[in-house]
């Protein structure tokens, strides 16, 4: 039996109408899921902005009113660092996913590959735009308001430990998730394009 004969069998099946397809219901369901998706994204964005706003209000107030100059500088660094973090995260998320879904497969794969590369760069440089500024600001603030005794030392140790943990978690995410994803994307793109793109 030839492949063409198999093709005839293929074309004869799967074209009968869905007995249980209610178009009104389908539409209502798809719209509800789409709106739920948008709500989730909006909620995440608002939470992120609210958390940053709280940090900016608290440390902004300290930057203006604290008695110690070192604490003022530290608080100002934390405020600037928080703004930088929110800006970088939000600009990294502009991915145009819905528009890309209708592009040719190879083009979409290339776009995804670029996005993963950008994410890798972002997480690998987390020390400079996330951990570093916030940790440095917090350290200056804690030392500025502290009395140089055990309490200050413990605070410094906690800040350093949390910073190292955040840095390590980001490195691990690159190694365990993004690098394998990149390899898979590159492999598939190579498979589709080879020398035919």
């Amino acid at each position: 039996m030839t492949l063409e004969e198999y093709r005839d069998a293929w074309q004869g099946h799967g074209t009968d109408p869905d007995a249980d397809l209610d178009e009104e219901e389908l539409l209502a369901e798809v719209k509800e899921r789409s709106e739920a998706f948008d709500r989730t994204i909006r909620r995440r964005d608002w939470l992120e902005i609210a958390a940053a706003a709280l940090v900016v209000i608290f440390f902004g107030y300290e930057a203006l009113t604290s008695a110690a100059w070192l604490a003022r500088i530290g608080a100002a660094v934390v405020v600037a660092g928080s703004v930088l973090v929110v800006w970088r995260l939000r600009s990294a998320r502009r991915d145009g996913r819905d528009e890309l879904a209708g592009r040719p497969v190879a083009e979409r794969l290339r776009a995804e590959l670029e996005k993963v590369d950008a994410q890798i760069r972002l997480l690998e440089s987390v020390l400079w735009w996330y951990v570093g500024p916030l940790a440095a600001g917090c350290l200056l603030f804690v030392v500025g308001i502290g009395d140089g005794h055990v309490g200050t030392l413990i605070s410094v140790a906690v800040i350093l430990a949390v910073s190292v943990l955040v840095w390590w978690l980001n490195r691990r995410a690159v190694r365990r998730s993004l690098r394998p994803r990149r390899r898979e994307l590159a492999r598939m793109l190579d498979r589709i394009e080879a020398n035919g793109g």
Partner: peptide, 25 residues
């Protein structure tokens, strides 16, 4: 796409590769 009798140009449009390469592949 082959089983659905899409033309080479349609396959190339969907995948984003050349028609020649569609044929070879």
């Amino acid at each position: 796409m082959y089983l659905d009798e899409k033309s080479y140009s349609e396959m190339a449009e969907v995948l984003g590769i050349t028609e020649n390469y569609v044929g070879v592949r």
